[in-house]
Amino acid sequence: MKQQFNAAYWEHRYQLNQTGWDAGDVTTPLKEYFDQVTNMDIRILIPGSGNGYEAEYLFRQGFRHVFLVDVAEAPLQNFAKRVPGIPKEQLLQQDFFSLKGKYDLIVEQTFFCAIDPAQRAEYAYQCAALLHKGGKLMGLLFDTEFTQEGPPFGGNREEYASYFKPYFHFLYFKTAYNSIQPRQERELFMLLQKI
């Protein structure tokens, strides 16, 4: 029987502390990108946000329209405890693929590699649907194959590009030069703009 990567699955992973993807802080490539963004009024979405260190960094820098979405309750509760000032309505416990609304920036950090690879084309479509025209999808993708059964699920830049090309201009899509140590030479940094 095929594993279902649903809310119960992810909630169980958090309860058992099986969160190997969790870096415990905003990673360098994302932090350095955020530090270049000057418009604090943009609406930012972080799908599969987990414990939301990226959102915490953004919020503490003055970005007030940061939205986290995750199917699991535990990481959103963890975030709310760490960042009590964020409005509760910006913590969305729901399936990313059913989400509505419009955003200026979507941040990808270990969500794409956590979903069933059969959903990758749908992920690209949903990102485009949630972005305003000219909005950006920014983040990191694993540019490697994993030997163990996922998640995480690996892949390569050619495969990934095929999902995004129908909806986005590629502003940057190269190996990240500033990945955290365990992920060096195995991540693509992407900056895509909705057509």
Rank of each mutant, 00 (worst) to 15 (best):
Q119K: 15
Q4Y: 07
V71R: 01
V107C: 14
A161Y: 08
T19C: 12
Q15C: 08
K194H: 03
R157V: 04
A114R: 04
F5A: 04
R183C: 06
Q36N: 12
Q90E: 04
A8G: 06
L30H: 02
L76S: 13
Q61M: 13
H132E: 10
E149Y: 07
N51W: 00
P87Y: 07
A128W: 00
K174G: 00
F96Q: 06
L137A: 04
L188F: 06
A23E: 11
D25V: 11
M190L: 15
P47G: 00
L16F: 10
Q184D: 02
K88V: 13
K102V: 03
Q93P: 09
N39H: 10
F142H: 11
F189E: 00
K194D: 00
D41F: 10
F96I: 09
W10E: 03
Q181A: 15
D116Y: 02
Q4A: 14
K100L: 14
E187Y: 03
G135R: 04
Y14M: 06
P117I: 12
R157L: 09
K194R: 14
Q109M: 03
L99C: 07
K133H: 05
E149D: 14
L68A: 09
K88D: 07
Y9C: 13
T38K: 15
T28V: 13
A72Y: 12
E89T: 12
Q148D: 15
P75C: 09
G24C: 10
V107D: 03
G155P: 11
S179C: 07
F59C: 06
L99A: 02
E89A: 13
A129M: 11
N156E: 08
I46W: 02
D95L: 05
K88P: 01
C127H: 00
L45F: 12
V107F: 05
K88F: 07
K194T: 01
E185W: 06
G50A: 12
G48H: 04
S49L: 13
Y14S: 12
S98Q: 14
M190K: 05
V37H: 04
P182E: 02
Y123A: 01
Y177H: 12
A55P: 11
V66L: 09
I195L: 12
R186W: 01
M190Y: 05
V26L: 11
N51V: 07
G20R: 12
D95A: 07
L16N: 15
E56C: 04
K133T: 08
F5C: 07
K165Q: 14
H12E: 15
Q193G: 04
L91E: 06
F153V: 09
L188C: 03
L99M: 15
Y103Q: 07
Q126G: 03
S98C: 12
G85Y: 07
A129Y: 04
N78W: 04
K194Q: 06
E32Y: 10
L192N: 04
Q119A: 10
E149H: 13
D104A: 09
E158G: 01
N17T: 09
L137N: 00
Q18V: 11
V107N: 06
D41V: 05
R82D: 02
G135C: 05
V26F: 04
E122V: 14
L30D: 01
M1Y: 05
D95W: 02
